[in-house]
Design a protein around this nucleic acid. Structure first.
Length: 662
DNA sequence: TCAATCCGTATC
DNA sequence: ATACGGATTGAC
């Protein structure tokens, strides 16, 4: 027993008379400490130390935060137990359901329980705890049409939600769809059934839009907005309102997926392909997969919605785990704008002003027409800073490794190109489409500027949206609206036209998801165009994803994408882990694994030093059949635990099914 | 023979 | 992490 230095005389403490043992996780981010430890609850803290409470305990001699998982009569531990030192706050922060969720998320991504808790539980703010309860909810507005009547399987899905069944669906929203109103309607159905709901969107702009729709559907005070930028007191206050059960519906960005809503009837994510849904902190879980776990574990219905569709969402449909909610072709034709493809470089407008803006002539004519019709025109330009990569010098087909399909890169102009994933040199590359052998570097410029367009269409207003200046919406007046992907404002009556420029640059990115991501960005922009409007995409109409945009076929594209991933052996067709760190550390971690049959190790390949020390880092990829994913994650965690117990301090970054493989 | 130091191990 | 114990080394 410790000498009891510090808080009070240890000898005088007595254990609580009922369930004196608390099992808890200490807030120390080491994989070998990712298990519960037992402590005695002193009589004086009996009421405050409950399952889910935050406490402070003495662990290895120092005071650390901890999360109580349960109280019980006795411990399995052989030695003497220390006392819980004090309670932090008066109320539990974990519920039975979120405790199970945090454990499941940690297990799925080979991470620690407390690391996931840090992602999902906001910092405590003592004053917010004692502050007055939120004002009571107003009247629930009368039920309205859900708006899902236009979709096959839409009404039956909502009936299931209303009946409290754990229906799961992937929803392809029609172009022009007021998706926020549909999400709000689905949440309202769960609320009327006496259940709670969680809706997660990528960014604050989408959140503001959903917030307005929720207020329209549910009235005042029935939902709470959880956003990262609220500031600690407000963030904690709103989160507590959910935890205490005063508010049953939480909407928000990423972290809202963990909101402690009891009796969940519905969890939903909008635009799961947006990389903002991928958590950048360990263990790097993804909103879609967190909610999928949560739906499976709590029996809540799941809705994955978007204009485009990810291979991961399609995988859930293909496996028969989720239903497909989509409109039929007739409905679609009535809603979709006309899409035409114009390969860059070809048919650049003869008009000198258009040529100055590097606009193809069809784009020029379409824009002019829409402006003259009195409608705004959306111009989507790429973000800055694409990584230079290699492609066929003749037809710009991205150059890929013949062994693992990774992107080829080049260290310098003289160097032999090599795979950025597995590191193999590619001396004898041949283009799969044209058979060419010459490679060229693709360096993508900063994109067309608003000034260039302004000059090309003199007399019309030019508005920009992107970076730290994002417009939520624009009016119906004719104007050029230049936006980067994800920052496209909505137009009150829809855009008359949209120009999606530099399509080939999007497609040529050295990323496995380039095609999927290009289609997602295009569809998100094109969905803002009126059904009688036009969309011009600067890309080759022969490319399958461009065809998918022209035919507005997100499902077909996702089916093809999924098949392609299966062929290349990439997620979600398989489970993959990326291990990044100093070479000896990565090797040590790998040595601690026994890969299941059918498991493969790719690499290693050098990567740009992402580490703290600037030491040369390398990456290996591990690939196992989907069914072995849980085993792979467990082994990675065990091997990482052995390393951290041995004080092999060199950290290795472990990512499961990484969204981006540069 | 004792103390300073280095590993390895457990942390309720 | 960090604290502790047991082994190891070095100097008197």
């Amino acid at each position: 027993m410790s000498s009891g230095a510090g808080a009070g005389p240890a000898a005088s403490r007595t254990p609580a008379s009922v369930d004196p043992v608390a099992s808890l996780y200490v807030d120390v981010p080491l994989p070998h400490l990712d298990r519960t430890f037992d402590y005695l609850v002193p009589d004086s803290l009996d009421e405050q130390v409950q399952a889910g409470s935050r406490v402070r305990v003495r662990f290895a001699g120092r005071l650390v935060d901890a999360y109580v998982i349960s109280r019980s009569p006795a411990s399995e531990h052989e030695g003497t137990l220390a006392y819980v030192e004090r309670a932090v706050g008066a109320e539990p922060v974990l519920t039975a359901e979120t405790t199970a969720l945090f454990r499941a998320v940690a297990d799925r991504w080979a991470g620690n329980f407390v690391d996931v808790v840090r992602l999902g539980v906001p910092a405590r703010h003592a004053r917010a705890e004692s502050a007055a309860a939120p004002s009571p909810a107003g009247e629930l507005p009368p039920a309205a049409d859900s708006g899902f009547e236009r979709y096959r399987a839409g009404p039956s899905y909502l009936t299931a939600v209303g009946d409290g069944r754990p229906a799961r669906a992937v929803w392809s929203a029609l172009p022009g769809e007021d998706w926020a109103a549909r999400f709000a309607a689905a949440a309202a159905i769960a609320v009327r059934a006496g259940r709670g709901a969680i809706l997660v969107v990528p960014d604050n702009r989408d959140l503001a839009r959903l917030d307005a729709a929720m207020t329209a559907a549910l009235g005042i005070g029935r939902h709470v907005v959880l956003a990262a930028d609220l500031g600690p007191p407000e963030r904690y206050r709103r989160w507590l309102a959910v935890r205490r059960g005063g508010v049953r519906v939480a909407i928000g960005t990423r972290a809202a997926a963990y909101a402690p809503v009891d009796e969940l009837g519905l969890v939903a994510v909008w635009d799961d392909g947006d990389d903002l849904h991928a958590e950048p902190r360990a263990p790097y879980p993804h909103t879609r997969d967190i909610l999928t776990l949560r739906s499976a574990q709590s029996g809540a219905a799941l809705l994955i919605g978007g204009f485009a569709r990810t291979a991961e969402a399609q995988q859930l449909v293909a496996a028969g785990w989720a239903h497909d909610i989509a409109a039929d072709r007739t409905t679609l034709r009535a809603a979709a704008p006309r899409v035409q493809a114009v390969a860059d470089d070809v048919e650049v407008a003869r008009d000198p002003a258009a040529a100055a803006a590097r606009l193809p002539s069809l784009a020029w004519r379409t824009t002019k027409q829409a402006l003259q019709d009195g409608r705004p025109v959306l111009v989507q330009v790429p973000r800055r800073g694409y990584v230079p990569s290699l492609a066929c010098a003749r037809d710009r087909t991205p150059a890929r490794c013949g062994v693992c399909s990774g992107p080829l890169g080049s260290a310098g102009s003289q160097a032999v190109p090599a795979c950025r994933w597995c590191g193999r040199p590619a001396a004898q590359w041949a283009c799969p489409t044209c058979g060419g052998h010459r490679l060229r570097a693709l360096v993508v410029g900063a994109g067309r500027t608003a000034e260039e367009l302004g000059r090309a269409f003199a007399g019309f207003a030019v508005r920009t949206s992107g970076g730290d200046h994002v417009l939520a919406d624009v009016g119906d007046e004719p104007a050029l609206v230049v936006a980067t992907p994800g920052a496209e404002p909505t137009a009150a009556g829809g855009y008359g036209a949209a120009l999606l420029l530099d399509g080939w640059a999007l497609l040529a990115r050295p990323d496995l998801r380039a095609a999927e991501e290009a289609l997602r960005r295009w569809m998100n922009a094109a969905a803002l165009v009126r059904p009688d409007g036009a969309v011009i995409v600067g890309a080759d109409a022969g490319v399958p994803v461009v065809q998918a945009l022209i035919r507005w076929d997100p499902v077909g594209a996702a089916v093809r994408e999924l098949a392609e991933r299966a062929e290349l052996g990439f997620p979600p067709a398989v489970r993959m882990a990326a291990l990044t760190g100093p070479a000896p550390a990565v090797a040590e971690l790998v040595a601690g694994l026994s890969l299941p049959a059918g498991g493969e190790l790719l690499g290693s390949a050098p990567v740009a030093a992402a580490g703290v020390s600037g030491e040369p880092a390398e990456r290996v990829l591990l690939r196992v059949p989907r069914g072995d994913g849980a085993d792979l994650a467990r082994q990675l965690h065990v091997s990482a635990a052995a390393r951290s117990a041995r004080r092999s301090a060199e950290p290795v970054r472990i990512e499961l099914d990484p969204a981006a493989l540069g």
